[in-house]
Design a binder for these strands. Structure first.
Lengths: 232, 232
DNA sequence: ACAAAAGTGTTGGAGATACACCCATGA
DNA sequence: TCATGGGTGTATCTCCAACACTTTTGT
């Protein structure tokens, strides 16, 4: 059986939560027409002497240029027919040596900040795009299921596992942290209560510094100290 | 790459939490000496036209005779060297066609009740044993890691996902439910508070009936109604 | 001065914790 | 009658939800 990894990479830019999608295509342009091409999550086969984690990191590095991205396995997808859809088979027959092979995939979700600099979203695999979660089109293979479960997993783990910080710049304001939570959890939060909770967390430490270049009262900057991550 | 499933099957008998382990051996006795054989989690290769879930159910059915066991995927283990240990290779060379192949495994945990009848723990794969969690010996391959993570996952999900009931008989007493929680979570719970919480859960319904054949005041029996499982 | 977001406390209710005695049954 | 676990209520405290005004900065 062939084994691949797929990555659902989420990014937050202060406004919206986005998912990185690639246009399904390869270097040499194939004979497939526009509407036979779909979008997909970045993924690739696992190399012979490479762990699953390493494969996922490699895919992400090749696509975004980033290293040390927060990356977490969340599910293996192994339906025998998960690459047997009509469009999927057309694509596989055009670009793959063994299109009939069964492929299972181990899915990872990753988190990056899109604040300071947008990690380059382009790659060997074709053009890539940050797509707002909520406007995700139909995807190739079972990538709809994968991205749905990735988002559900992100929601579940956001509060319990201190992973929101991975989507913020190193120095962030409490407003940014709150907006992120509101968007991921899809509900409004009370400012005063939110700040009360955050201030009880040891691992969110105030820097002496303030925001600059904003046209209102500058906010204090905070940072996340992973060493102090033994819950509150 | 070869793909297998492994199952960490937990059972509760009212006293202790147990894990089903098999003696690593096959039908035709091999030339391996006693101390070269280890214990392992039940597992098998995934068949060509079989989903991962189906493979896990099959392994469990073959081993315990049970169907409809609660079974949940929790992690894929894909280290390139996970079957390259010395003892592991001795065993693989004796019993497998392609001992040098890389094998990744998708791990499931399962839950059964050992109250009414002990599901038969024997199989094509050799003798099997219910081993108390806490006295688990060193296991073959990376099965130590797998069983550790299985137990951690069970702990995490016990309260949030109503899965404790899977390890109790259909009719159970509140004491049994509490003991189960105490053992899995490894901490004592207050009887009155525990019962207060349970009584707030719609999906734990009291039957009119009472326990029989005990040498003390008989307890009321409860059952779990999965239809009412939309949290409290 | 004005616009824009930062920052700050209190109150009421719900859920968590801690704790001790009487009850029903079988032997 | 005794041994064994079943079954119950109250007081306290902590955590959560709801809610509005003043402060600081840039223009």
């Amino acid at each position: 059986m062939d084994v691949s990894v797929d990555c659902a990479l989420f990014g937050f830019d202060g406004e919206a939560l986005k998912l990185l999608l690639i246009h399904q295509r390869t270097a040499e342009e194939g004979p497939l027409s526009e509407d036979e091409l779909q979008m997909a999550l970045p993924g690739d086969f696992v190399n012979e002497q490479e762990s699953l984690e390493d494969a996922a990191s490699r895919v992400l590095h090749e696509l975004t240029g980033l290293d040390n991205v927060y990356l977490k396995q969340f599910h293996a997808f192994g339906d025998p027919n998960r690459v047997k859809g009509l469009k999927d088979q057309q694509w596989l027959r055009t670009f793959r040596e063994h299109p009939e092979n069964r492929v299972m995939t181990v899915a990872y979700f990753g988190l990056v900040s899109l604040h300071d600099h947008i990690p380059r979203a382009s790659s060997f695999a074709g053009d890539a795009e940050w797509t707002e979660v909520g406007s995700i089109p139909q995807l190739a293979f079972d990538h709809d299921d994968i991205s749905d479960l990735a988002l559900a997993t992100l929601r579940e783990q956001l509060e319990s596992k201190h992973i929101g910080f991975e989507m913020l710049p190193k120095k962030f304001t409490l407003r940014q942290l709150q907006t992120l939570h509101e968007i991921v959890l899809d509900k409004k939060l009370d400012k005063r209560n939110f700040r009360k909770n955050v201030k009880r967390m040891d691992h969110v430490v105030p820097l002496g510094e303030k925001e600059e270049g904003v046209l209102h009262k500058p906010a204090q900057l905070f940072t996340f100290d992973a060493n102090l991550t033994h819950d509150s």
